[in-house]
Amino acid sequence: MSGFTLAVCAEMVFRDLPLPDRVRTLHDAGFAVEIWDWTTKDLSALGATGARFTSMTGYVDGELVDPDGADRLLASAERSIAAAEALSGQGRPNLNLHGTGLDGRGLPVRPVVEVTGAMWLAAQRTLVRIAELGERHDVVFTLENLNVAVDHPGTPFASAADTRALVAAVASPHLRMNLDLYHAQIGEGNLVELLRGCVDLIGEVQVADVPGRCEPGTGEINYPVVAAALAGAGYRGRVGMEAFASGDSRAAVEAFRNSFTL
């Protein structure tokens, strides 16, 4: 049995099917579902599947450090909260954030070469506002770590150490970490100690193997060991497979389930 809530990103598997059919397929297989940019989706159709949605993008504009960008981020986050209502039949999805806005290729809209102390303070102020917004609406925002070596060069506050520091500084149950272990393996490694050091701040764990960003068991990460370490650290929350299928999608999601079934 798994002590975790297992979810699969519908953007990355069963890609020959329309999105509502992907969601329905995952739901029928016993998984919760994650999506990315809600503005491109028929939310009514997705909500009608009966699936539980555990994560979606929590902003479509703005950034953490620029005052105008922060205002746009807050306005965008409010729209995301409203959009999430269509998907909240079985519990509200987390609303996911990054260190800055990303374009369609996953690259930062405004790359940052050096993150200054002033940027850190500005990001903390913006995230305090985000947490207050989450408290008013009883939703949880998550701040996801990314990697800059392969997928997201130029993204500020990208490492798990960065997101941990910001989430800890805000100290609100309405702002948590989305600890993405694929990104962390590329950028930092030492995953078991990493998760043990931030387990009290985690709102979700996302997984994919390295290299390739496919399902657990296709790369170098020993995910059964990671799963046991998560459980041993007391984590009983959401684990999402944000990974492409290396072959058959059904086999990929079952490999994920097996890796996180203790």
Score class of each variant (00 low, 15 high):
residue 188 E to S: 12
residue 185 Q to P: 05
residue 155 T to R: 03
residue 213 R to M: 05
residue 192 V to Q: 10
residue 223 Y to T: 07
residue 159 S to R: 12
residue 139 V to E: 11
residue 161 A to I: 06
residue 223 Y to M: 09
residue 117 G to I: 08
residue 199 V to Y: 04
residue 150 V to P: 01
residue 116 T to P: 10
residue 146 L to P: 02
residue 148 V to I: 15
residue 174 H to M: 07
residue 133 L to S: 07
residue 176 R to E: 00
residue 192 V to A: 13
residue 206 Q to R: 01
residue 191 L to K: 02
residue 115 V to A: 14
residue 209 D to R: 01
residue 202 I to Y: 00
residue 137 H to M: 00
residue 213 R to D: 06
residue 150 V to E: 13
residue 225 V to W: 05
residue 221 I to Y: 02
residue 163 T to C: 08
residue 155 T to E: 10
residue 118 A to H: 12
residue 158 A to D: 14
residue 122 A to T: 14
residue 115 V to F: 13
residue 222 N to F: 08
residue 133 L to W: 14
residue 187 G to S: 15
residue 153 P to A: 06
residue 134 G to Q: 04
residue 150 V to F: 04
residue 233 A to F: 00
residue 137 H to I: 00
residue 117 G to N: 08
residue 137 H to N: 10
residue 169 A to R: 12
residue 229 A to I: 04
residue 162 D to F: 11
residue 132 E to K: 08
residue 192 V to T: 14
residue 148 V to P: 06
residue 122 A to V: 13
residue 149 A to S: 12
residue 146 L to R: 10
residue 226 V to Y: 09
residue 121 L to S: 15
residue 136 R to M: 13
residue 197 G to W: 05
residue 117 G to H: 07
residue 196 R to A: 09
residue 146 L to M: 14
residue 184 A to C: 09
residue 154 G to H: 06
residue 155 T to L: 11
residue 144 E to C: 09
residue 212 G to E: 06
residue 212 G to T: 03
residue 184 A to E: 02
residue 115 V to L: 14
residue 227 A to G: 09
residue 121 L to C: 12
residue 177 M to C: 12
residue 153 P to M: 04
residue 187 G to A: 15
residue 141 F to K: 06
residue 189 G to V: 01
residue 202 I to M: 01
residue 187 G to W: 02
residue 234 G to K: 05
residue 145 N to V: 12
residue 123 A to V: 11
residue 223 Y to D: 09
residue 184 A to F: 01
residue 164 R to W: 03
residue 188 E to I: 09
residue 121 L to V: 15
residue 152 H to N: 15
residue 190 N to Y: 00
residue 185 Q to M: 13
residue 124 Q to M: 08
residue 177 M to A: 03
residue 144 E to S: 03
residue 164 R to V: 03
residue 139 V to T: 13
residue 141 F to D: 06
residue 131 A to I: 12
residue 124 Q to K: 15
residue 233 A to N: 02
residue 223 Y to P: 08
residue 134 G to P: 06
residue 119 M to G: 06
residue 149 A to D: 14
residue 194 L to K: 03
residue 231 A to T: 12
residue 134 G to T: 13
residue 210 V to W: 09
residue 204 E to V: 13
residue 233 A to W: 04
residue 116 T to L: 08
residue 195 L to K: 02
residue 179 L to P: 01
residue 191 L to D: 02
residue 202 I to H: 00
residue 152 H to M: 10
residue 214 C to A: 09
residue 154 G to E: 01
residue 177 M to K: 02
residue 214 C to V: 13
residue 131 A to C: 13
residue 194 L to D: 01
residue 146 L to Y: 11
residue 169 A to F: 02
residue 133 L to Y: 14
residue 204 E to N: 14
residue 147 N to Q: 08
residue 133 L to P: 13
residue 223 Y to R: 07
residue 137 H to D: 07
residue 179 L to Q: 00
residue 165 A to T: 11
residue 116 T to C: 08
residue 116 T to Q: 12
residue 157 F to H: 05
residue 157 F to C: 03
residue 161 A to Q: 05
residue 233 A to Q: 03
residue 130 I to R: 06
residue 180 D to R: 00
residue 136 R to A: 15
residue 166 L to Y: 07
residue 163 T to Y: 06
residue 216 P to H: 12
residue 161 A to V: 08
